[in-house]
């Protein structure tokens, strides 16, 4: 959360690493869920929640809050880990992911968990919902909050995404910033093989959006992109963030099978070791 003194890049990297650890742990515990697309989104979510966005975990419905909509609802584990880290609920609760009676449903359920703006999971809808919030903020309530939405790359195959893109440009929603988690993989294989979405930057630009390209695992680039997006007036922005599915866990990186697969206990141990190594490396950095 944006504070008087912003967190350093190193602190943000550490937070991202901790979130990855929690994602692996919760998925192992639940024995199901989407590993790859949760891990690819971590640095984007970290930059949003611990650098860019204004919100109050103790007052989830604070009217002035910046809004975030997880349009790629299957990355719920990443969002839950981030919300726990931000203080919306105890980290301990992450263990309940996908279990009977949990507030941490398989896909985000706004009626169960504070901090969730919209129930998502059916792809394409989240970006439209974000457009609606942005329209209300800009044209009806005339408030200053900003609206963020995280899209999957395969999600760009949904026609609704382009209906939303058209409407956001039409209504000049410059308080809206989408981020595309472009990890190049979807359930059935490489996005380019299943249904190519490229040239994706040209498409968004042609729909009237300000397009920013960034390395989706480079915190510095991401926070600059988020800041730059805020400066653009008269049109919505999208950050095309190049990411790696399964990022942070070597044996999951770039592997299709981890789209909807949870790690085993052995894989979890191995993954946590890797993340701890990485954490040490960050600490040793100047």
């Amino acid at each position: 959360m944006k504070t008087e003194t912003s967190l350093t890049e190193k602190q943000l990297k550490k937070i991202a690493c901790g979130i990855r650890k929690n994602i692996i742990k919760m998925l192992t515990e639940s024995k199901s869920g989407h590993s790859g697309g949760s891990l690819s989104a971590v640095d984007i979510l970290t930059s949003l929640y611990f650098y860019k966005m204004n919100y109050k975990p103790a007052e989830p419905n604070w009217p002035e809050r910046d809004r975030f909509v997880l349009s790629k609802g299957h990355a719920a584990p990443a969002l839950y880990a981030v919300l726990a880290e931000a203080g919306y609920f105890p980290t301990e609760e992450l263990k309940t992911l996908r279990k009977f009676g949990t507030r941490l449903q398989g896909h985000p359920d706004r009626r169960k968990l504070p901090g969730i703006e919209a129930s998502t999971g059916s792809l394409g809808q989240g970006i439209s919902i974000a457009c609606g919030i942005a329209l209300c903020g800009k044209h009806i309530d005339k408030k200053n909050y900003r609206v963020y939405a995280l899209l999957g790359d395969g999600e760009n195959q949904e026609g609704e995404v382009w209906e939303a893109a058209m409407s956001a440009a039409h209504y000049k929603l410059d308080n809206l910033c989408a981020v595309l988690d472009y990890n190049g993989l979807q359930i059935d294989g490489f996005v380019k093989d299943v249904m190519n979405i490229d040239p994706i930057t040209d498409k968004w630009r042609a729909f009237g959006w300000n397009v920013i390209e960034a390395d989706g695992h480079n915190i510095k680039e991401l926070i600059k992109a988020l800041d730059d997006a805020e400066q653009i007036k008269g049109k919505p922005s999208i950050i095309i963030a190049k990411t790696i599915k399964g990022k942070g866990i070597s044996f999951m990186e770039g592997k299709v099978k981890y789209h909807g697969l949870a790690p085993t206990y052995e894989e979890c141990e191995k993954g946590l070791c890797e993340l701890e190594e990485y954490e040490k490396k960050i600490s040793e950095e100047a």
Binding site: V69, E117, A118, G124, Q125, G126, S128, I129, A130, C131, G132, I133, A134, L135, C136, G137, H139, I140, D141, G159, E160, E163, A164, M166, S167, H170, Y171
Partner: peptide
């Protein structure tokens, strides 16, 4: 006119956008 929005021939986006607007108390 300030409380009416035309979404063009795009009903899916209109419906999900309505969710966003409703989430702001409308």
């Amino acid at each position: 006119p300030e409380r009416f929005f035309n979404y063009g021939v795009a009903e899916q986006n209109m419906t999900a956008s309505a969710v966003g607007i409703a989430s702001c108390g409308k």
